[in-house]
């Protein structure tokens, strides 16, 4: 059973970095500040339907 989230409305870290055109050397800093919010958005979404 597939555990990896694929959605038009979700971007994983590489996709997020590409969307926001983040320099490669900024990845360690951008991971939490950009991808963290992407992940929190999923948590918020699920809260609204359970």
């Amino acid at each position: 059973m597939n555990e990896k989230l694929k959605s038009e409305y979700y971007r994983d870290l590489p996709e997020t970095l590409e969307k926001y055109e983040v320099f490669e050397e900024a990845i360690p800093y951008a991971a939490e500040s950009l991808q963290g919010l992407e992940e929190m958005f999923i948590g918020f979404t699920m809260y609204l339907i359970v």
């Binding site: 059973m1 597939n2 992940e39």
Partner: peptide, 14 residues
């Protein structure tokens, strides 16, 4: 139900 698994896991792992 199978399609919801990745979302459930995201919500269940903080």
């Amino acid at each position: 139900a199978a399609a919801l698994l990745p979302l459930a896991l995201k919500a269940g792992i903080l």
